[in-house]
Nucleic acid binder design. Structure first.
Length: 164
DNA sequence: GCCAACGTTGGC
DNA sequence: GCCAACGTTGGC
């Protein structure tokens, strides 16, 4: 059995928040709507059931990591690509040759406190995190085991004093 | 609302 | 294959 891996997924809380995930039956949902090839390849080729997931709120005030989740299925086709009524409909995709793949995500725990982007940026141990790279827009991205541990450790520490 | 950084599209 | 135009993401 392969070692557990770690990931970060972004979601705009206005469209789907961590609370929305907690409200789902079994706290799980199909992580649909990803329409970026690099993110698709990660979902399809690398994510495995049981992997750890950091749940990040983008376009939020402030943007922050709010919770933990896990990959709860293997990869399978995103049904929204076949649905003409969906915003995610892709006329170029067919059931025989699906273009977009997803996995299920299940919430496991809310963080002790939200970790704001600003605070993450100030932690030198997270310098190499994909989320913090300038211009990074990937909505599904890898996290190293060290980064995962550091994020969890930060959440257990007290919030830093505001700097402004 | 602005805009930098990317990704995609399509003419050539 | 190049690259300009356009669309999207997402912090600020």
């Amino acid at each position: 059995m392969a070692a557990r891996r770690y990931w970060l997924v972004k979601s705009e809380p206005e469209s789907f928040s961590f609370d929305d995930l907690l409200a789902c039956e079994d706290q799980r949902t199909a992580w649909d709507g990803v329409r970026n090839y690099q993110a698709r390849n990660t979902l399809r080729d690398s994510m495995q059931s049981g992997d750890g997931v950091l749940f990040y709120h983008s376009n939020a005030q402030p943007p922050c990591i709010v919770g933990l989740a896990e990959v709860a299925s293997g990869p399978y086709p995103d049904a929204t690509q076949f649905d003409p009524a969906s915003d995610y409909f892709d006329p170029g995709a067919t059931r025989d040759d699906p273009r977009w793949i997803l996995v299920d995500i299940r919430a496991t725990a809310r963080l002790e406190r939200p970790l704001e982007l600003e605070e993450l940026k100030r932690n030198p141990k997270l310098d190499a995190m994909e989320l913090l790279r300038k211009g990074s827009r990937l909505s599904v991205q890898p996290v190293t085991a060290e980064q995962w541990r550091e994020v969890l450790a930060m959440a257990k520490r007290k919030a830093p004093k505001p700097t402004k």
